[in-house]
Design a protein around this nucleic acid. Structure first.
Length: 720
DNA sequence: ACAATATTATCAAGA
DNA sequence: ATAATATTGT
């Protein structure tokens, strides 16, 4: 019994063995938060009459949910059957599945991901004759999601200005379309789960009685509707344990309310508060930097990380010439690290926005360093995967217009925009699905024979696929569909590396289906479960999870992780803090918290990099170092000076010095050279030497440019 | 209807 | 720079 507590420090023990009741655990980065949560649950199970059945634990990601369940079972020594562990979205989905009737949903409702959502909204905007210049579908999508995050339906909103009115019109139409098609988007899952409990007293009573204990991780990132749902479920009897760190609240932009954790003690009765400030992750220097940065924020609950370990190595600051140089520097240091006997997966490169990953990837590939990217485009968001899934969705239900529109002509089969328009209009006018509309349209011969035949053969194809996949396993189904639909041939005919990757992704989908373990207790079919999970799962990546590779991710997706060696790159003005964060007052503080999250990921060594010049979105910019860098005390950070100074050319290098330098590279001034991108040109200057040599080339078509020799990959043109 | 080509929009984070 | 979209020729 007591050995549960033996490995914990004072504060942790206090949190784990607190008398049951409402609890707020303020857990600093690296303070063993998950450990406390796991032990708390185990302790409750061992020392009170609470059973796994009575516990619900909410995590931030599906991955975290899986890990938590595993760790609890490990500590307990037996499976914690009946315990609900998952994300808000996952749990809401489970609830809606179980009570689809009370939730007023069709039994097999379809989860709409943001891509599907956008397509649908675009369609509606067109149908409603709304000016898509003034009201871009993206903006409307964003607005609708924001309303849902606040728990607002179209009927709740009053529009006084034309702008809101337009958005509201779309929202209403969107709600209706979802209702008809049985679609549920991410926000809807939460909203409807809340309404389900609110409007069904018997269900609410049932679940209130069942879940005596509700534990929520990352509480600082809960939004209004999630909080409302939790509050409702807890009632006056359920005990809530909120675990989080106000300093790590970084999802305000998608509706998270930091107030939820700040006011927790006022909102719930008799809250026992524990602060976990002892850090077991990082060196003293890293913590000093983190504490110093976050101190610039106001309205904090107040918390200071401390450690018993020594200061360790100071942080390093590298000023790169440009983003290429930055990437090159990072790769070089990683190679050193690996040469010193470390694993590649012990280091991470963190950036503010996904667009930054490309240059880093290229540098890693060039140097043959294996890497793995987190987040970015989700696996299940890829075009070819979504197409394959759309076919699978049609097998389940012909009335899934979203899926139908997606693949009706992929690969091309003679059903063009005109034909689809006719079907779509018919469907809208008669309030039926497009599949039904197709049948009608064919019967009434509203089309040319050619188009009609194309439609008929498409419908046959789907029916045939349905039949052919009847008794197959999930993986066989996927394989069959990819084959029969012609997707495989379609991508095989494409050329280039991209097509190759697409084919690989499709076979990856089959493998994913192969290893997918569905819950056979559930009434829903394995295929249904698979599709739902695909929509809900962040695709926290299956393949090569265990292979030793460098980890690349955004600062956001780094939350909750730790690495001995961390690089924060692109720490520049306008990029981080991002320039979009300047208008709204709270946003800058959120950026700072993001910086705090980044710094505290590092265990042993942290590099901070920025580039003097950066090419992003096709434009060159000179941003200068981020203000966050200045907030780090100079005692704990050191500038990296490379052994060879780069003298930057202010004028055209003198002919003589240039020729000297050129000799070292085996080049000649005046020589013709070829460049992959810029074509042919004449070498007009050289400067520096070795790895830092830069050359000036006057290109025939592109004009004169300075290039870093190492990356330019110039090929001498033999004179002829 | 399709494929190839020209034009234009987008460019912060994610369940 | 790239991706989505519009236009044009077959």
């Amino acid at each position: 019994m007591t050995d549960l507590l033996a490995s914990l420090n004072e504060a942790q023990r206090e949190a784990v063995a607190a008398t049951p009741g409402n609890q707020l655990i303020l857990a600093g980065a690296g303070s063993g938060k998950t450990r406390v949560l796991v032990h708390r649950i185990a302790w409750l199970l061992q020392n009170t009459d609470i059973t796994p059945h009575g516990i619900m634990a909410v995590t931030f990601t599906n991955k975290a949910a899986r890990e938590m369940r595993e760790r609890i079972e490990e500590v307990l020594g037996f499976p914690a059957r009946g315990m609900w562990v998952g994300t808000f979205h996952g749990l809401a989905h489970r609830l809606l599945k179980a009570h689809f009737k009370d939730a007023k949903l069709p039994e097999s409702f379809q989860i709409l991901d943001s891509d599907d959502q956008l397509r649908l909204i675009k369609k509606l905007v067109k149908q409603l004759n709304i000016d898509d210049e003034r009201f871009p579908a993206k903006d409307i999508q964003w607005w609708i999601s924001a309303q849902k995050d606040e728990g607002l339906r179209a009927a709740h909103i009053e529009a006084y200005d034309p702008h809101t009115q337009a958005q509201l019109t779309v929202y209403s139409a969107y709600e209706e379309a979802c209702l008809r098609g049985g679609f549920v988007d991410f926000g809807e899952l939460l909203l409807r789960a809340h309404e389900l409990l609110r409007d069904n007293q018997h269900l609410l009573e049932h679940y209130r009685q069942r879940f005596q204990y509700l534990l929520v991780d990352e509480f600082q990132d809960t939004n209004t509707i999630q909080y409302a749902w939790l509050r409702l479920l807890a009632g006056e009897t359920g005990a809530v344990t909120a675990v989080g760190d106000d300093d790590q609240s970084i999802y305000g932009w998608r509706g998270a309310k930091i107030e939820n954790i700040q006011q927790f003690e006022q909102e719930f009765s008799n809250v026992r508060r524990t602060k976990l400030e002892q850090n077991y992750r990082s060196t003293g220097s890293i913590l000093t930097a983190a504490n110093a940065v976050i101190e610039n924020n106001t309205d904090r609950l107040g918390k200071e990380l401390r450690t018993d370990s020594g200061p360790g190595e100071p942080l390093s600051l590298y000023t790169a010439f440009n983003e290429q140089d930055e990437a090159h520097f990072v790769v070089e240091r990683i190679q050193q690290w690996v040469d010193n006997g470390h694993r590649r997966d012990s280091c991470a490169i963190l950036y503010r926005s996904n667009a930054q990953s490309r240059v880093l990837e290229e540098a890693l590939i060039r140097n043959g360093v294996p890497y793995r990217i987190y987040g970015g485009q989700r696996f299940y968001d890829r075009l070819e995967i979504k197409n394959a899934l759309a076919y699978l969705r049609l097998i389940i239900g012909r009335n899934d217009d979203t899926a139908l529109e997606r693949v009706i002509n992929v690969p091309t089969r003679g059903i063009g925009g005109k034909t689809v328009d006719i079907v779509r209009d018919f469907a809208r006018d008669h309030g039926c699905s497009m599949w039904e509309a197709m049948q009608q349209v064919i019967q009434h011969k509203l089309l040319t024979a050619r188009a009609g035949n194309a439609l008929i053969s498409f419908m046959h194809l789907i029916d045939q696929m349905d039949e052919a996949t009847d008794d197959l396993t999930l993986a066989e189904m996927a394989e069959q569909v990819i084959e029969m639909s012609g997707l495989k041939d379609h991508h095989m005919k494409e050329k280039g590396e991209k097509a190759q990757a697409r084919l690989e992704n499709l076979s990856e989908l089959v493998s994913a289906a192969k290893v997918y373990d569905y819950d056979d207790e559930e009434p829903t079919s394995p295929l249904r479960q698979f599709l739902d999970d695909a929509a809900l799962d962040a695709g926290e990546q299956q393949a090569d999870e265990h292979s030793d590779s460098v980890q690349l991710m955004t600062l956001h997706s780094a939350k909750g992780l730790e690495f001995p060696l961390v690089f924060m790159v692109g720490v520049e003005k306008n990029l981080f803090p991002h320039k979009m964060s300047f208008d709204e007052p709270g946003r800058l503080a959120e950026e700072r918290r993001l910086c705090y999250v980044g710094i505290t990921r590092a265990m042993e060594k942290l590099y901070i990099c920025y580039a003097e010049s950066r090419r992003l979105h096709g434009k060159e910019s000179f941003n200068g170092p981020s203000n966050f860098i200045k907030e780090i005390p100079s005692e704990v950070i050191q500038e990296v000076r490379l052994r060879t100074e780069i003298t930057r050319p202010t004028t055209v290098a003198s002919g003589y010095a240039s020729q000297e330098a050129a000799n070292d590279l085996g080049l000649k001034i005046g020589q013709r050279v070829f460049h992959q991108k810029f074509g042919e040109g004449v070498l007009t200057g050289v400067e520096g030497s070795g790895g830092n040599a830069r050359v000036q080339v006057n290109f025939d078509y592109e004009g004169s440019k300075w290039l870093v020799m190492q990356y330019a990959n110039l090929r001498p043109m033999d004179e002829f």
